[in-house]
Write a protein that binds this DNA or RNA. Structure first.
Length: 314
RNA sequence: GCCGAGAUAGCUCAGUUGGUAGAGCACACGGCUGAAAACCGUGGUGUCGCCAGUUCGAUUCUGGCUCUCGGCA
């Protein structure tokens, strides 16, 4: 199907368990599209069941990008994601296909669409370790105090208790000699974006989550987690803080019961869904929202084909 | 049937030496610029089981009733 713009990129967002994966694959078949995942947990190899990653069978031959691109002990960052997305878009267009960016990680979605240019200071492990150690000694408030001293603007935007953000601000200030607050630049990529939001009632999402988690347990999440642990991937890795792996690890290490671990998984996923709603707001005029009713595929197909809803970064 | 314990927020419970109440969880909401399923923050919840009595005033004390959970028969 032809679209009425020269450089289309379709974006599909929505909370966990809303049904993004399934719908986007159906849509991709209709539009000769390829899917670029913007999901921070699909990046890691070997983390399939707990992340509800689409299986090759579910993909139905639609090419997927940014899935399984890293080992669980790699730490990926927004600029890397942005680069990968840019090159995937270029390849897809080169093949004459349409890029569909699909995902629920707000930082990635807006970072890509708005073209965030994070501070130039790369994460500096040594410096970060020192700062974290200092934070542990002097406390969060004192750390925030240092930020306030060096960069009052930045300090205003960081909560006094948020050690992680204070540490990053100091890291940037120390390694660039520039203020953290002055390094928030944007350079939006020049595509025609159309952003589709998928929604369901909270109640329905919660039910789907509960069900999905039961299926994960039945489908081998324990074994998958065991495999990751045996490969030496432990709970201090960012990847292993993902919902499910963290709780199952606690169970496998006999810290909590399986029942408790499932309960915590469900709870944390619900909180996660609520927090996603902060990134993808009903009131955001860039997003066209669709309720996941049976006719949603038809509706979204019509919307994508239409002249409506294009935003062009210029 | 008898004995005991209990009945307070959606749930588990704390509490008021009598002046109509509070934690955790749940739920709702917010922030986020090189870790983001991370990290950090905000909020309201109620005929204190029912009916009487004592009292200026009872969720709190007393009596009865209802229900729940133990134990004994």
């Amino acid at each position: 199907m032809q679209l009425p713009v020269t450089d289309p990129v379709i974006v599909i967002v929505g909370p966990s368990a809303v049904g993004k994966t399934c719908l986007s694959i159906e849509l991709a078949k209709r539009f000769s599209a390829e899917i670029i995942s913007l999901d921070s947990r699909y990046l890691y190899r070997g983390m399939d069941i707990g992340t509800a990653k689409p299986t090759p069978a579910e993909m139905q031959g639609i090419p997927h990008h940014l899935i399984d691109i890293a080992e669980p002990d790699e730490t990926l960052s927004l600029p890397l994601i942005q680069q990968q997305v840019a090159s995937a878009i270029a390849e897809i267009k080169h093949r004459g296909n349409i890029p569909f960016m699909v995902g629920g990680t707000g930082q990635y979605v807006w970072g890509v669409i708005e073209g965030w240019l994070p501070p130039t200071a790369k994460p500096n492990k040594e410096l970060r370790d020192i700062l974290e150690k200092t934070a542990a000694d002097v406390g969060a408030a004192a750390m925030h105090g240092y930020v306030a001293l060096l960069d009052p603007e930045a300090a205003k935007k960081i909560e006094p208790n948020n050690v992680r953000r204070s540490v990053r601000a100091l890291e940037v200030i120390f390694s660039t000699g520039e203020l953290f607050s002055e390094q928030k630049r944007k350079d939006p990529p020049r595509h025609d974006f159309k952003i589709i939001g998928l929604q369901r009632s909270r109640q329905e999402l919660y039910q789907r989550v509960d069900q999905r988690i039961e299926q994960m347990i039945a489908g081998g999440l324990l074994q998958e987690t065991q495999n990751l642990l045996q490969s030496g991937y432990h709970s201090d890795l960012p990847s292993m803080t993902a919902i499910g792996y963290k709780e199952i690890t606690q169970y496998l290490q006999k810290e909590i019961s399986l029942e408790e671990s499932v309960r915590l998984m469900k709870r944390r996923t619900r909180t996660f869904i609520r927090h996603q709603a902060n990134w993808f707001k009903q009131s955001d005029e860039r997003i066209r929202w669709f309720e996941m009713f049976p006719q949603v595929l038809t509706e979204v197909t019509a919307f994508i084909s239409s002249n409506d809803g294009w935003t062009r970064n210029r």
